[in-house]
């Protein structure tokens, strides 16, 4: 068995190397190379905090976008985040949070905040895509931060869902549940279900770490790995369960409740019928 295990790991590494060499010819290879170059140059720039967030910025913002965004920001966000987005007692500074953060927070309806609570909750989106883009442009202009991910990296069909699954279980499942059904955090906070969340917002959540979610920078989980995670999430979301209704993917508690209420309920109905006299 021990021999077996060591040969197994070797095979695992070969598999990995093979995967790497395959990726070299991948359409994304040039992109990844560019990314690495950016990482190296960015390393010098990155002093302490919001460093290694360099990535391909496909969304290019014009000066006009920034200006329009600035207006929208003053009208809708500045009351909490302050003029110039430098923060206040009520809300954090947005300097350096990047376009991705704005796109996620506003694009999922979490911002503008409806009310104070343990955490901002997703709700119907308040702005048009164009407006969100303009506000993102404005915030991105204030300081370097994670940008909105490109279409290519978000293409779930290019990802490796089994690698993504492994990464998801190690990095995400403890909060979001192994089937991405969500879970509880302390004092009323919670990790939401990821079911139905768009590829872009999943990616942005990872790079920006909204609210209490930790940041999974590209130095921690590479863009390709993020793509794999997205591929995994989209796979399980689309395929559903082979066994039938999922009962919320909540595990043994919902299964137990189901057998007590529905299972035993039907059994009792039959026992009553069985022992009653025929009319």
């Amino acid at each position: 068995m021990k021999n077996f295990s060591s040969s197994g790991t070797t095979r695992g590494r070969n598999h990995f190397v093979k995967a790497l060499s395959q990726r070299r010819r991948h359409p994304l290879a040039a992109f990844a190379l560019l990314l690495m170059a950016l990482l190296v140059t960015g390393g010098i720039y990155a002093a302490a905090s919001t460093a290694n967030e360099a990535q391909a910025q496909t969304t290019t913002f014009t000066a006009n976008d920034v200006e329009e965004g600035s207006k929208l920001f003053s009208a809708n966000c500045a009351s909490c985040h302050g003029m110039g987005a430098t923060g206040s007692d009520a809300a954090p500074s947005l300097v350096g949070v990047g376009a991705a953060s704005v796109d996620f927070q506003v694009g999922t309806g979490r911002m503008p905040l409806q009310m104070n609570g343990p955490q901002a909750q997703a709700k119907p989106v308040q702005f048009t895509e164009e407006q969100i883009r303009q506000m993102a442009a404005y915030v991105a202009s204030l300081g370097a931060g994670p940008s909105i991910p490109s279409e290519e990296i978000l293409d779930a069909s290019e990802g490796d869902s089994s690698n993504g699954g492994e990464l998801f279980r190690v990095n995400c499942a403890m909060c979001h549940n192994a089937a991405a059904a969500g879970g509880a955090l302390t004092r009323g906070k919670f990790a939401p279900s990821i079911d139905g969340t768009s590829e872009k917002h999943i990616y942005e959540a990872m790079v920006t770490g909204p609210q209490n979610m930790p940041v999974f920078s590209d130095a921690n989980i590479s863009p390709e790995d993020k793509q794999d995670i997205i591929a995994f999430l989209k796979t399980i979301e689309e395929q559903g369960s082979p066994g039938g209704a999922e009962l919320g993917s909540l595990g043994p508690v919902s299964e137990g409740l189901f057998i007590w209420v529905a299972g035993l309920g039907v059994v009792i109905a039959f026992t009553v019928w069985l022992t009653s006299r025929s009319s």
Binding site: V170, A173, M174, A178, A181, A184, G243, A245, S249, E255
Partner: peptide
């Protein structure tokens, strides 16, 4: 019609990961 214990969701045992719930 009803899934029970979807082991494919949970993944193999490994002492590092854990699922919420």
């Amino acid at each position: 019609a009803f899934t029970i214990n979807p082991i494919w969701n949970y993944g193999p045992y490994d002492p590092s990961p854990v699922s919420a719930g």
